[in-house]
Design a protein around this nucleic acid. Structure first.
Lengths: 274, 274
DNA sequence: GCGAAAACGGAATGAATATTCCAAAATCAG
DNA sequence: CTGATTTTGGAATATTCATTCCGTTTTCGC
């Protein structure tokens, strides 16, 4: 019997192509399955056969038959395809750089490609996940402050200093706490001031200390950090969470810079209007 | 028993808020869970408790206890929350951007959309237009230097300081010329050293002066600037041109940061191999 | 309309998975 | 140091889920 032996689709694209070709010649229930699957790709990744089948108004067994007809061993295999497609959007960079470390054969241009990709993805993720309301509140808080204090040390110092530069350019009173000379500047935090504190793991003690002092004195606080479990997240403040993709142990800070720029320019605009 | 009766979080935001508040008072294993969950939201949606627990290096039972401690009936309920969140996230980046833009003429979200787009485009442009050969030569020059001097003032100081941070992290001898105290540090440029000078229009005089001194003394020079007509481009050096897209008068520096990271990490890799 | 073949749906099965339980280890108070 | 309390890890159990099976219904050629 030379019946066409069907093999499991390798990619979502290939599968969709197959769907398109065969769906016409499918019996009623199976066609229902095909149509549902084609138009609800996102649900497949998450739901169980039972849910999907109910949604598509077919018995679960029909959905199973459909999967097998399409060349999969069963529903699970088909689901796997959809899940893989999704997770590709957030690739695993740590494994890629460790291969880079070991191989050592990587050229600077490969590195550039890695960092570019990480930066682009981080920015996209920021735009997708930002809490608009918190962003707005942060701007309000900062626009109302007499003086804006900025603290960010070590890996986040670059962001802090760029914020300071931008505020200066817009003639907004701002103080960058740089740690230069190890002077304790806690006493500079005055009434009516606000503090922007930026820290990612491992959290620099001085940054946390300054933020805590500010919180204790009742200053308004805007915090940029990476995780809800960060010490900065424990403070009473407007929290902005940024997840920066890292390549190995290195972060491009692309998303954080973008967020910082947004904050400062929005504050500048708000102040001018008032 | 007046024990605080805890109810399941309704939204991811609410859950993160709760995480933020309680995570600090959690015992070791549960804190591990909290941190893993906080930093891998995407994996939760797909994986089973067993997988997640293994990844977080805790027994499955600990993860279960964590979920219940957080007010969920169990892992499944928590997973449901993440899945719901995700189906809403599916609208892709461009869709999300346009929705951000429609937030109002000068609202923070509109700005964020602008800056995100500018950053993404700048990075892509960099990756496309970079001269690979020059990049390689820059790495060679820096990898061979005894000490790496870094200068970038005003708008590029953020990049310069991040370079300094990265070099420090890799234990590569580097000096950041910050302009603090207005000390002239020209005499620190020694034989066998190299200088990275970063400057965009309007070019800061001190940066140009230091670069010129370095060139006069025969130090190797790597220059990051924006235009071929820049005073830095006139010097005998490896020139890397970056065109950063600006929004109004503001630049995100995403591309410049990416280039800087590439340089420093490539130098780090090269040194270790040799 | 008749018979054969295909399609169907629901009940039954077995595997995968979540959840609970408890004994051992760690931590803490005095 | 000692007893009390909390935390932990893995084994035992309960649930959920995918998959199969098979009797019934539908379709189609004649």
């Amino acid at each position: 019997m030379p019946t066409e032996e069907i093999t499991a689709p390798r990619s979502l694209a290939e599968f969709q192509e197959r769907l398109r070709r065969v769906s016409r010649s499918l019996p009623k229930r199976l066609k229902q399955c095909a149509e549902y699957v084609a138009s609800n790709p996102d649900k497949i990744a998450f739901s169980t056969v039972a849910d999907i089948a109910a949604d598509a108004q077919v018995p679960a067994s029909a959905m199973m038959r459909f999967c097998q007809e399409m060349g999969f061993s069963g529903y699970s295999q088909m689901q796997k395809l959809y899940r893989e497609e999704y997770s590709q959007k957030w690739p695993d960079y740590s494994t890629r750089l460790s291969s880079l470390r070991n191989g050592g054969a990587e050229s600077p241009s490969t590195l550039l490609a890695e960092f570019s990709e990480a930066g682009r993805a981080s920015i996209e993720n920021l735009a997708r996940s930002i809490d608009q309301d918190k962003l707005r509140r942060a701007v309000t808080v900062l626009a109302g402050a007499r003086t804006i204090h900025i603290v960010g040390l070590r890996r986040t110092f670059a962001v802090a200093s760029y914020l300071a530069y931008t505020f200066e350019k817009m003639r907004i009173p701002a103080i960058l706490h740089s740690g230069v000379g190890n002077f304790t500047q806690h006493h500079m935090l005055g009434d009516g001031d606000a503090l922007i504190a930026i820290s990612f793991a491992p959290y620099t003690a001085d940054t946390v200390a300054l933020a805590e002092t500010a919180a204790a004195r009742g200053l308004d606080l805007v915090v940029i950090t990476d995780l809800p479990t960060s010490p900065l997240a424990a403070l009473d403040a407007v929290h902005l969470l940024v997840s920066e993709i890292d390549v190995g142990n290195f972060r491009v800070l692309a998303a954080t810079m973008t967020l910082a720029m947004t904050l400062s320019v929005a504050v500048g605009a708000r102040r001018r209007v008032v």
